[in-house]
Amino acid sequence: MTRVLVVDDQFLIRAGLVALLRAAPGIEVAGEAGDGAEAVAQAAATRPDVILMDIRMPGMSGIVATERILAEAPDPAPRILILTTFDLDEYVYGALRAGASGFLLKDSGPERLLTAVAVVGGGDALFAPSVTRRLVETFARHAGPTSEPPPDLRALTGRELEVLKLTARGLTNLEIADQLFISEATVKTHLNRAMTKLDLDSRAQAVVVAYETGLVTPGGGAP
């Protein structure tokens, strides 16, 4: 059973999401929140598996709430799926850097929403990696310097770098396995080790780091 917390400041949207999730098999609605501060409190109180997080809310935004929830959550931390009206939203990029597992457009159909919840709740760290890669590429071109230096990739082995590079290019674990002639389980092992060495919590963060360190360049694949 996947427990989901729904966060959206618009009552009708939130109510619709809650109704959809309650009607779906294998999903339990852990709670709902109308703003970021309430989301942080509900996440701590209910310990959901997945959080559907609206990005633009009055008061505490979804990105700040994402940072707070992931910083304070005991293991295992919830998977946060950002809900946004725009597929190229700078706030979504910030949320991915903060550790969100991916994002979903609000105009996505019910099937896609339920699939996203199932995939993220099942432990896959990123939904629709090619879309996230496009978002990262767009903002990597224009983003100013970050307040923190990017992680040092020298800690990674050659194979871990290869897997990270292909992940950032939007390939799935199965596609990476086929390209490198290794098993899908081995791909997961290399990516998890790379993320541990770089102190990353999600596949989305790994994609962002690959662009910010220059391992992959916007629009050009691997340099």
Rank of each mutant, 00 (worst) to 15 (best):
L70F: 03
T172L: 13
D199A: 14
I13P: 00
M1G: 14
R68D: 03
A116C: 04
A71V: 06
E67H: 13
H142N: 12
L135Q: 09
V119D: 00
G123W: 13
A125N: 08
L171R: 10
Y91N: 13
A45G: 13
A168I: 11
T146H: 15
A140W: 05
L166M: 13
E162F: 07
T157L: 06
D35M: 08
L113Y: 02
G220C: 08
F181E: 15
V7I: 05
V163W: 09
P218V: 11
A65Y: 03
R56P: 01
E38V: 10
V131P: 02
R203P: 04
A77S: 07
R154P: 02
A23R: 11
P150L: 10
E111Q: 14
A210G: 14
F103Y: 15
G26S: 11
H190R: 03
M195F: 10
A43P: 07
L70G: 06
V18D: 02
P223Y: 01
A116G: 05
L215S: 05
K106F: 08
R97T: 07
A71H: 06
V187D: 07
I176T: 07
V187P: 04
V50Y: 00
A30P: 04
T66Q: 13
V6M: 09
Y211L: 08
S108Q: 08
D124T: 14
L105F: 03
D124A: 08
I82S: 02
R3D: 11
G62T: 01
M60S: 13
A43G: 09
L166S: 05
D152F: 05
E160M: 04
G99Y: 00
A98R: 03
L174H: 08
T189Y: 12
I176Q: 08
F127K: 07
D124H: 12
R14F: 03
G94A: 14
G102F: 01
L104Y: 02
L164Q: 08
A41C: 09
E160S: 11
T157H: 04
G121H: 11
T157S: 15
L113R: 01
A177W: 03
R159W: 12
E162L: 15
L70R: 00
A37E: 15
I13R: 00
A100E: 10
D87N: 14
Q205H: 10
F181Y: 06
Y93D: 12
S183E: 09
T146R: 14
L12K: 00
A204V: 07
I80D: 01
A143M: 11
I51P: 00
D35A: 09
L88G: 05
M195V: 12
P48E: 06
R141Y: 13
T217Y: 12
P129A: 14
A168T: 06
R3T: 15
L191M: 10
F86M: 09
L164T: 07
D9M: 00
F127A: 08
G59A: 11
L105W: 05
T115C: 00
E72D: 15
A128I: 04
S147N: 10
N173T: 04
V209T: 13
V136D: 05
V50A: 00
P25S: 08
E111T: 12
